[in-house]
Structures are given as structure tokens and as C-alpha cells.
């Protein structure tokens, strides 16, 4: 059977059963498959790829610990985002007690780039800054929707709240982003 015919969710379930039986190669395959989106999501949340990688590593350690108890009621990717979301909440609480927070840290140093690329980088920095200004639940919801293409139902599972709350947060996030980005970034401008 060609690889394209394999249902990725079904394959995730098969690999998780192997992980639960102690198969490290199955864990390696799962990490290889899922870490890019997880790091992408976490980097958008914390603003630092190094911190995002640390957190993603912890997500997979927790997945490994929970493998025997895991029940495939939701997609594995949703479960991974759920672990990541809880880790982010814990990390923010922990770091809120310290004055300097890596979660609100300085952006990563940009490479030297031509002027046109610098202009693009400046726009992207404005976007990044705007996202960072959102309250954390609005930021998580809008990133999961727009960046990660999750449905409202999946976002509700990840964040452990109902769909109406997600819709409210996303609506508020959209309004706030338009306000933060100003008239230069209105659709069609």
C-alpha cells in the first residue's frame, strides 16, 4: 500500500500503542511527525524558538509518560496542543513571579538582510508585536485558528473550554488586532 493511503490519525494511534509498549523508535517517528507544528505554535506564543523547543521537548516527555493511559478519543495533534497549552499556562504562572520573563522576551536577533527583506521583516515584526499584545487566551485561540488551522471544536478541546468562549476570544482578538495594526494593515490596503 502506498504511503499516501495511510491515514495519519490511524498511524498515530498505532504508533502510540507501540510507544506504550516501550518502543522508542515509534516515539521517534511521532516526534518527527509532530514537532514542527508544535514548535511553530509554541514559538508564536513565547516569541523565542529556543524556549519553544524546550517546551516542545517537555510536551513529548509528557506524551511518553502518558502513552499507556492515552485513549484515542481525539486526534493526537489536538492532544499534543492541549499538553502544550497547559505547559504554557504553568510556565507563565511560574515566570510571572520573576521580573524578567523569557515569555515576554526580546525577539530573536535577525540576520543581516537586504533592504527589501528588511522592510518585510519590519512588517512581520509589527505583526509579531501585535500578537504578543493580545491577552494570552485570545493569542492562543487566534494562533490555533489562523496558523494551525484547528477547528473551533478542536481549539475548545486544546484550551479546555466551550466553543462559545473560543468564538468570543477570537472575535475580540480580531478586533484588537485591527486596532493594534492600524489603518495600514486593514484588508485590501
Amino acid at each position: 500500500m502506498p504511503e499516501t493511503d495511510i491515514d495519519p490519525d490511524e498511524d498515530d494511534r498505532r504508533l502510540m500503542a507501540l510507544v506504550a509498549a516501550g518502543d522508542d523508535d515509534a516515539l521517534r517517528l511521532l516526534v518527527h511527525r509532530h514537532h514542527p507544528r508544535l514548535v511553530g505554535y509554541l514559538a508564536s506564543q513565547v516569541g523565542s524558538q529556543a524556549t519553544a523547543e524546550e517546551l516542545a521537548l517537555e510536551v513529548f516527555i509528557r506524551l511518553h509518560r502518558a502513552a499507556a493511559r492515552w485513549r484515542p478519543e481525539a486526534k493526537l495533534s489536538t492532544y499534543l496542543f492541549h499538553i502544550a497549552h497547559n505547559l504554557l499556562l504553568n510556565e507563565r504562572r511560574r515566570r510571572a513571579r520573576k521580573p524578567a520573563s523569557a515569555l515576554e522576551g526580546a525577539p530573536e536577533p535577525a540576520d543581516a538582510a537586504p533592504r527589501s527583506q528588511q522592510a518585510v521583516a519590519e512588517i512581520q515584526e509589527a505583526f509579531r508585536h501585535a500578537v504578543a499584545q493580545l491577552p494570552e487566551e485570545q493569542r492562543a485561540a487566534i494562533v490555533l485558528l489562523v496558523q494551525q488551522d484547528l477547528s473551533y471544536e478542536a481549539i475548545a478541546e486544546v484550551m479546555g473550554v466551550g466553543v462559545p468562549a473560543i468564538k468570543t476570544w477570537i472575535h475580540r482578538a480580531r478586533l484588537r488586532l485591527r486596532e493594534l495594526l492600524g489603518p495600514d494593515f486593514r484588508p485590501g490596503s
Binding site: 516515539l27 514548535v39 495594526l181
Partner: peptide
Amino acid sequence: LDPRFVAALRARRSIPVEGFADRAV
């Protein structure tokens, strides 16, 4: 939402990290 904003956000959707799977295992 501004399409450039959406594009910028989606550009960081997936960040593959070399050797990450070995580190995780």
C-alpha cells in the same frame, strides 16, 4: 484579518528542528 498578517502567521506554522526527534527520545 489582513492577508499579509495571516501569511506572516502561517509562515511560522511549521518549524522543523534538525535532530529534535533524537533529543526528545
